[in-house]
Simulated scan of single mutants.
Amino acid sequence: MLNHDDLTTEALCRYMLERQRDTISVQKPEFALRKLHVIIVAALDLSNRKGFQAMSLRDLSRASGVSMGGLYAYFDSKTTLLNMILSEVTAAVQRVLSTPPDAVKDDPVAHLKWLIAAHVEMTEEMQPWFTFAFMEAKNFPAAERRKAIDSEELTESYFADVIAAGIAAGRFRADTSPLLAALIKPLLQDWYVKRAKYHRRSITIDTYIATLQDFVLSACLADEARTGLRVRA
């Protein structure tokens, strides 16, 4: 089970405040947190509606109710704000996916299923953050675009490591495609990028997770275990 309280926008802003303490000039922590929360919510909402590139700091000031001077107390440019948001997305991925429960650590099948569930649940909780990082990546400056790509590759590496462990343990087929970890990523992204499509079809998050787990396992389970998976289905 994920600690969902750790993935709320307030919690993420608290992490952001701690990470940026040398650059954010507001001294009172609780006041700074409340104001930062308002700014980030407005920035994500504006960016996901009109695009980060099109959003000006004046737009953000109007939407958040924070003066231009107030905004500059938190960041000195849109690029700095972009880096702050991307850093929290990457940190959340690392924090969540690098800490599987003890019960799944030594079982590649259970671990792979947990990774899928954990990622989908995390992006459901942080949907505006992940949508921002995905939809805006093509418009980022080169350094920030590289940062977004690195975050995607980090996610892929967790899946690749578990798949490799499953192959080594004989739980996954030796001929499992080396592309499998890379192919899982767009399936995970589809949940938060195309949520309206699944909502129209009355697909719940639990159904999506279970379907994705079965689909991925069918591509890598050893033959005997794969037969068992078909029987259960």
Rank of each mutant, 00 (worst) to 15 (best):
D106W: 05
N48F: 09
I24A: 08
T155F: 09
I205L: 09
D5K: 14
S218H: 12
L188P: 05
A137L: 05
Y198D: 03
P128F: 07
L217D: 09
Y15Q: 14
M84N: 00
T90G: 10
E125A: 14
L188K: 06
K113W: 06
I40S: 02
I167P: 01
D102K: 12
A91T: 07
E88D: 08
N83G: 12
A160T: 10
L217S: 07
D5T: 12
T123L: 01
K35Q: 11
D150F: 09
T99W: 08
P100H: 12
A164P: 00
P101A: 13
K113S: 14
L221Q: 04
M126C: 07
A42L: 00
P141F: 04
D206L: 10
E10Y: 10
Y72H: 11
Y198L: 03
H37T: 14
L179V: 03
K197Y: 15
Y192C: 01
R200M: 15
K197Q: 11
A222R: 12
D102Q: 14
S61V: 08
R34C: 13
L212S: 06
A117S: 15
T131P: 01
G70M: 02
D175H: 12
G69W: 08
Q20E: 15
P101G: 08
R95V: 00
I163S: 00
I203D: 04
F134I: 05
R14P: 01
L81I: 07
R95M: 07
H111P: 01
T207G: 12
Q20T: 11
R200E: 15
H37G: 04
K35A: 06
I167D: 08
A164Y: 09
L2T: 12
I163M: 02
K105P: 01
D190M: 05
E10A: 10
K113P: 06
L46C: 09
Q189M: 10
K28T: 15
V193C: 10
Q94R: 15
I167Y: 07
A73I: 03
V231N: 03
A219T: 12
E153I: 14
P100E: 13
L115F: 07
S218V: 02
S151M: 15
D161L: 12
H111Y: 11
D45I: 04
I205K: 01
L187Q: 11
V66S: 02
M1C: 12
I39R: 02
H4K: 14
T131C: 10
A233K: 15
Y15V: 13
A117W: 08
R62Q: 15
E152H: 13
F130W: 10
G69S: 12
A168T: 06
R34M: 14
S47F: 03
G70K: 05
L57P: 00
Q27C: 08
L46M: 09
Q27Y: 06
T176P: 00
D175I: 11
